[in-house]
Amino acid sequence: MKVLPAGSSSGALFASVPPSSPPPAHVPAVAPGTSTTDTPRDALVPAVAPGTSTTDAPRDALVPAVAPGTSTTDAPRDALVPAVAPGTSTTDTPRDALTLSLPEDASTHGHRIDELLASSHRFDAVLIAVALGWLVLAVWRFHQAKQAASDGGTRRSRAWVLGLALGAFAVVDGSLLLGSEGYLRDVLWNFHVPAEDPRTVRIEINAHQWSWEARYAGADGRFGTPDDVVTWNDLRVPVGAPVWVQLVSTDVVHGFSLPHFRVKLDAIPGRVNQTWFQAAREGAWEAACYQHCGTSHYRMRGVLTAMSPESYATWLREAGKQATQAYDAEDLAAHWGWEWKAP
């Protein structure tokens, strides 16, 4: 199952990618703000709609992918551009579209999941080979055999069955369980890391039908204040620092996923869920909704841009200034932020 039959190559799909792009067969990095890959590279800069304030952003944005209205705007253009153009930042080997492989891993810790999956799949392959091989061999060897055994197994053969099952279970499930537990202990459920790291970036995300609204604390480091930076379908994080996400939904159950960061978490109205991750390198990737949330579920797409810590800081500073100027105390709908919840 590792390699799918060739013959339906998808290379042509990506023929429109500029030739400067090193991996010609596959563009792992996302074109932020657009859903087409044939836009010129310059247009891939997160689209900034100058002058739009938070409240102007479409609350019911049916077309979230287009023009993520960052609330913050006149910030120097270069501060908004990820230092490295998306697509070129990724140094992983080009992958054939039909290779069975996970989305490219852009996070610091995701490789542990990937390795666990890979090792688990090796065991799975052995199990499949044994089970199906045995089946085929038995059918082939004993097809229409002259004589069949008359017993339902002996004590010994039944003990073998139990022993084999126990052995396979111990090895396959045991390694999976231990590997998973290690990841949970060190990463997924270990909030000491983001809590203790001074560089940690905290983001509050509010899921809507059908867009992602993200809130940054701004310069004062507190949520729910006028300098909060709010973006739509446009997440920005610095490279190399833990990113701590707290997540809610205003309407229905959504699923916040960053496929390239091995992040998945339900956004459920009425409760705050949290997770954390860390970007390993600069670039832009997609955020996707994975829980059916209505007719436009499929358009609930956002873009995450991992930037150098310096450009991130510049962006946040400028965006915070903008937000303070544009702050509207009357606009209650825009004040959904909450006091950061301790783990």
Binding site: G110, R112, I113, S120, L176, L177, S180, V263
Partner: peptide, 13 residues
């Protein structure tokens, strides 16, 4: 199997 363990469930969920 990989869906039964939390860590490997995350990318596949």
């Amino acid at each position: 199997l990989s869906l039964g363990a939390v860590a490997t469930d995350v990318p596949l969920h």
